[in-house]
């Protein structure tokens, strides 16, 4: 199961800062996470939530913030 704590932990482990990360802070479109890190985050989400995200669901609406990620995972499991 993916949680807010897990996402924050991932950001820190990958060299990011969570100081200014709120639940609705854009992660990828704001360049807070680069594309390599964002791909890794999506792979962690898939693994933790035990889902495979279809290409059409890989959108900023679904994955660009902590709230969006949690909502998408809840809807998909």
């Amino acid at each position: 199961m993916i949680t807010k704590a897990k996402i924050l932990e991932f950001i820190i482990e990958n060299g990011g800062s969570t100081d200014r990360v709120e639940d609705d802070t854009p992660l990828f479109s704001s360049s807070l996470l680069d594309s390599f890190t964002m791909v890794s985050l999506i792979m962690v989400i898939e693994s933790e939530a035990d889902i495979t995200i279809p290409p059409e669901d890989i959108t900023l609406d679904n994955l660009d913030s902590i709230n969006a990620i949690l909502a998408y995972c809840e809807k998909s499991t």
Partner: peptide, 20 residues
């Protein structure tokens, strides 16, 4: 398989960013 998945996600992600 995982490397291919990483590649697929990367492509989809770039498309999502440009659409955004």
């Amino acid at each position: 398989e995982l490397a291919r998945r990483r590649y697929e996600i990367g492509l989809a992600l770039n498309l999502a960013k440009s659409q955004g």
